[in-house]
Design a protein around this nucleic acid. Structure first.
Lengths: 221, 221
DNA sequence: CTAGAATTCAAACAAATGTTTGTTTGAAAC
DNA sequence: GTTTCAAACAAACATTTGTTTGAATTCTAG
């Protein structure tokens, strides 16, 4: 049971794939860096494709294990739930204890899905998104259209994943301010406040529209 | 002056590079699809690397030409300027008349910069970001820290680029709602309202904090 | 201790890939 | 009419790359 090599291979391959993409890495380099023979890839994974797929799987699994989905008590106010959700998402995408490649690899698949693991990634992302939708529905009782709700959800997710997806640009633009900028708690706090404010005004707008429409209707009848 | 071949090569190569990345495309395929001889790449561009770099350059230039930086009159209220800025950014990233590959190619470079055109991309992104910063400073007179300002800026940009970067996921999650979701004007309107609300509450928070701090100071002295 | 399974290894293979070469073509310049 | 030159092409070159093979080595269970 020397699965040590298999795991080591997954780790090294994951790092490299995350850094340079599937085609940017050769089996030879992976094996060399892992200190094993080239044929180890074939022995343990069959071929390169499968090694890649397995690496993504491992990355996702570890990411979920390390930052499990939040479980809130039913009587938490929705606003609190939202803060938890946002911090959770931020943790998953940008707080990675030494294993930066995991989030990176998953994100690469989200941005440009490989045929090999398209379905897998969707099954990884969709549940999280639906939790967010249900949560927002609590915050926004029926005043907002379904489309509006989705836009809000995407606004929130967009703010969070930006720091990961555009890490390079963020680092460059932020300069010395970077460390304080990406401080997890503060960032979560900012995005939550920012988004809650947006949500509340959207509710108000929707209420106004509805009231106005009702007035029109009444005056017409 | 048969620069037709050169341009055609750039167009085809750009499409393919955007779709499958630098290493995912071979010179042979590019030339085959362009209907020219393999050595044309060497003849016109020296090597593959340079062809790629040139393709990115062209993409950026065309993108800028097609959607030039907004010029607003100095006495426009900042909130209006912000809406213009957001619509402009959205147009650049997701409204591309038949040339989807241009925005795609640039975004790939933003997300995972190639050594070849790292500096170039920064010079493409930074000016836009600085326009946004100046604009936000008008909206948020000194109550907000520099770090806070950057966070707001990233929140806005994040919301916009999300629809491009995670296009695949958005399409999948949105389902039939996609067309109405990514309607340019409505989307710009949403992000503007959403962000303005966030900004206003942040200002209030900052004001409250400052007032409280001042009170503490006065009562202490 | 030992037979058999599991693992590792060096070498080799065929296909693919970026690049180069030598030549041809067709029209412009002299 | 001769020379010049950019443009295009087929063929070939030297590597690289994913994969396979078959023997050597290590492990493990009886």
């Amino acid at each position: 049971m020397k699965q040590g090599v298999r795991n080591h291979l997954l780790e090294i391959a994951g790092r490299l794939f995350a850094e340079r993409g599937y085609d940017g890495v050769t089996v030879r380099e992976i094996c060399h860096k892992a200190g094993v023979n080239v044929s180890a890839v074939n022995y343990y994974f069959g071929d390169k494709q499968n090694l890649y797929l397995e690496a993504v799987r491992v990355a996702a699994r570890q990411r979920i294990e390390e930052v499990p989905m939040i479980t809130w008590s039913a009587d938490d106010p929705p606003a609190v739930k939202l803060r938890h959700y946002i911090r959770n998402l931020l943790q998953r995408v940008l707080l990675n204890g030494g294993a930066d490649w995991q989030a990176q690899l998953i994100m690469s698949e989200v941005v440009k899905p490989t045929r090999a693991c398209r379905r897998f990634v969707q099954e990884f992302v969709r549940p999280n998104f639906e939790v967010l939708l249900r949560l927002l529905r609590e915050l926004v009782p029926e005043e907002l259209s379904e489309t509006g709700l989705y836009r809000v959800a995407f606004s929130i997710v967009g703010q969070c994943v930006y720091y990961r997806l555009c890490k390079g640009i963020v680092r460059n633009l932020a300069g010395k301010k970077l460390p304080s900028l990406v401080h997890l708690e503060q960032l979560a706090q900012h995005i939550t406040e920012f988004s809650l404010a947006g949500i509340y005004t959207l509710i108000q707008r929707a209420r106004q529209r509805r009231r106005r429409a009702q007035l029109m209707l009444e005056s017409a009848s």
